[in-house]
């Protein structure tokens, strides 16, 4: 009946194997290119620098991947990240709460923003782009109101450890990020929640008819996304030992770029965290390599956009080829 070759095992690369492989390939090509262009690219100091600075975009991208797979989008992540740093310093400096508690409360507030996003999207049924565009603006505004526009220093060794500390020779933030990736990859691949999310992204109506509680799944997704964005904000504040209402400006675009680069579809129902991780790394390596090559920052913006276009076109071409193949048989 069908020519599908029997496939025995469910390899964890399968599904997007071609996308992920092509991504890894472009990653290595990029690395080789930079290695030949600048002698400093393959130094341990640079590796350490890269490792230190992956977590902010990396962690935020986890949440964005979930949201995009569910067929939505969250523009408010950058604002939420700024709010979390600003709130942590408010609770600590103004209310004199312990720093640990302040951080926890800040994250809690961010999570509530996510819950609010989710409620507006599922109950009032406003399009996710519009909803989060509104919260993007509201939350950024609140960050300015709360901080009165001020940058506040957060000098506390335990706090800055989150952003700058090392554990068994690796940056703490990197370890935290990798643990989150493993955990959420497992959730996406093997939990009922994760699989349902793909079904919802593929067709919310069909998922609803199949008996999936779509609203609850979306609520959880947006809440998780905002929590992870808040965590990114805490890492920014910890790295800089200060909080600023202007922090994480444009983070949402960097994150969406990384996630889409990693093969997740803006139309929903398709994507993987492995792809996202590779996307995040490629984007970071690209920025790093161009700075090392002393390329003007304007050209860096151009390069970032070109890489995204290239990656997505590559995917389209691959899709077209596979259609052609199928059409001819």
């Amino acid at each position: 009946m069908t020519a599908t070759a029997p496939q025995k095992k469910r390899s964890w690369l399968k599904g997007d194997s071609i996308t992920t492989l092509s991504l890894l390939l472009s990653f290595f090509v990029l690395c080789i290119f930079f290695a030949t262009q600048t002698e400093f690219f393959l130094t341990s100091a640079n590796a350490a620098n890269l490792a230190r600075t992956l977590a902010v975009v990396g962690i935020c991208s986890i949440g964005m991947t979930l949201v995009l797979i569910s067929g939505g989008v969250d523009i408010s992540v950058g604002s939420v990240a700024a709010l979390s740093g600003v709130l942590a310093s408010l609770f600590w400096l103004e209310f004199s709460l312990p720093l640990g508690l302040s951080t926890f409360l800040a994250l809690l507030c961010c999570t509530l923003v996510g819950l609010l996003n989710g409620l507006i999207i599922t109950v009032i049924k406003i399009n996710p782009l519009i909803t989060t565009l509104a919260t993007f603006s509201i939350v950024r505004g609140l960050a300015f109101v709360i901080s009165e526009g001020q940058t506040n220093q957060l000098n506390n060794a335990a706090f800055t450890y989150i952003g700058r500390g090392s554990l068994v020779g690796l940056p703490f933030s990197l370890i935290l990020m990798l643990v989150l990736y493993l955990g959420f990859a497992f959730v996406l691949r093997s939990s009922a929640f994760g699989r349902n999310l793909y079904a919802i992204g593929g067709s919310p109506e069909k998922a609803r008819l199949a008996g999936i509680n779509v609203s609850r799944h979306l609520l959880i997704t947006y809440t998780l996304c905002a929590f992870l964005a808040g965590l990114s904000g805490i890492i920014i504040a910890a790295q800089l030992a200060s909080s600023a209402p202007r922090a994480a400006t444009g983070l949402e675009f960097t994150v969406i770029t990384a996630v889409v680069l990693g093969g997740t579809s803006l139309a929903g129902g398709k994507g993987s965290l492995l792809g996202t991780l590779v996307g995040v790394i490629i984007l970071r390596v690209l920025d790093n390599g161009l700075v090392l090559m002393e390329v003007s920052s304007f050209y860096q913006d151009v390069a970032r956009g070109l890489v995204l276009l290239l990656a997505v076109s590559f995917d389209q071409i691959r899709l077209g080829l596979s259609r052609l193949r199928r059409g001819s048989t």
């Binding site: 699989r195 793909y198 079904a199 992204g201 593929g202 067709s203 069909k206 008996g211 999936i212």
Partner: peptide, 18 residues
């Protein structure tokens, strides 16, 4: 037919009742 492109045939058969 709407379907989630990344889900397998098996998952599509049982979605909502995995």
């Amino acid at each position: 037919l709407h379907y989630a492109p990344d889900l397998s045939v098996a998952e599509n058969l049982f979605i909502g009742n995995l």
